[in-house]
Simulated scan of single mutants.
Amino acid sequence: MAEYRINDLAEASGVSVRNIRVYQDRGLLPPPTIRGRAGWYSDQHLVRLNLISRMLERGYTFATISELLHAAHHGMRVEQVLRGSPKGGRFRNFKRAATITIAELKKTLNATDRSIALSQKLGLLVKDGTHYAIKNPELLEGAEVLVKAGVDLELLLDRWVRVQEDLEDVAKSFVGIITDKYFDENLPDLGEKGVSKMADLIQTVRPMAHDIVETTFRKALDEQISKAIGEAATYFDAARDDETIPVESGGRPAGQTDPDNETTDVGTLNTDTGR
């Protein structure tokens, strides 16, 4: 994967260094990877810059571009974006400020040094001096709800790490559909046209793989949720069946007479009937 310094990225994309920094400040472009004192950009940054440029040429505003890029990142459809109502959660307010303190993380999320380190590893938080830049405020808001319900934040983050590792294998298997066909002893002889075709095929696989993973995961998640609710209902029914009815001496439920020993007040009966 190619890497670029900011000047090289500007030359490759046709976007000025100043505008690249503006896009970063507006959250349209992810920050570079910092190594030492240098920031390094990847091909993904180049692709994102080209997309932003095309959207600006079509008349989209920065706000619209930001919303559409965010929706695409989370696999949302256009209708989901249009019908969604703006939310004003606490962490979305932090997004405007771009950073959050360690004290706030520990206060709202019971964050530990390990959970903060995991959040950095997953790209949820990025160190920014003595603060942390929030990369996904919606996830932090969801995490806060879980923490308030008694769920351990580290448990959630550990699951995320595991999913990330599993999905890396899934992604490799989908890309392998193409590379297994082309990456052999004939690869050096493909030429520019062959390499371009191979790259186009990989890009064709990408949305297909995304849809397959999303659809499969949604189905599996729905099944597990239904199963969990069913198990909860079973426990509830069992607890209800275990509730005992008060029993009088003799083994009869309270208030129930014994038909073998039932007696009738004849005097009362004759009074009521007149006979």
Rank of each mutant, 00 (worst) to 15 (best):
G36C: 03
L167F: 10
D265V: 02
V175T: 12
L201A: 09
N7T: 13
F183V: 12
F217I: 09
R18K: 11
L146P: 05
W160S: 11
A98D: 12
T263P: 04
N50T: 08
A63E: 15
G39P: 00
V163R: 09
T33E: 13
I134D: 00
I65F: 07
D180I: 08
G142A: 06
G230F: 06
R48H: 10
A111G: 03
L125R: 00
D200A: 12
S13N: 02
G194Q: 01
K181S: 08
E144V: 11
S53R: 07
K87R: 15
S16C: 07
S13L: 00
N261T: 15
R5W: 09
L201W: 10
L118Y: 08
G251S: 13
V195P: 00
P253S: 11
V81N: 00
Q256W: 15
K106G: 07
L69T: 00
D184A: 07
G267R: 10
G88D: 13
V205E: 01
T244K: 14
E141S: 04
V151P: 01
L118I: 10
V161H: 11
R21C: 06
R162K: 14
Y60C: 05
D211N: 10
V163N: 04
A2N: 08
G75V: 00
P137R: 05
H70K: 05
S119I: 04
E11D: 15
V195D: 03
V205M: 02
H210W: 05
R206W: 05
R159M: 14
R96I: 13
E231P: 03
D258S: 10
M1P: 13
E57F: 03
P188F: 11
P207C: 02
E154I: 15
G150R: 07
A71W: 00
S16W: 09
M76D: 03
M198F: 06
L109Y: 03
I100C: 04
K127R: 14
G142E: 10
L139P: 01
G14P: 03
E141T: 04
Q24V: 06
G255D: 12
E11W: 03
L139E: 02
E168W: 08
Q256M: 15
D200V: 07
I177L: 04
T204E: 12
D25F: 12
Q164K: 13
D200S: 14
I177H: 01
K193A: 11
G39D: 03
T271H: 11
V145S: 13
E67G: 04
E231Y: 15
A228W: 10
G123E: 08
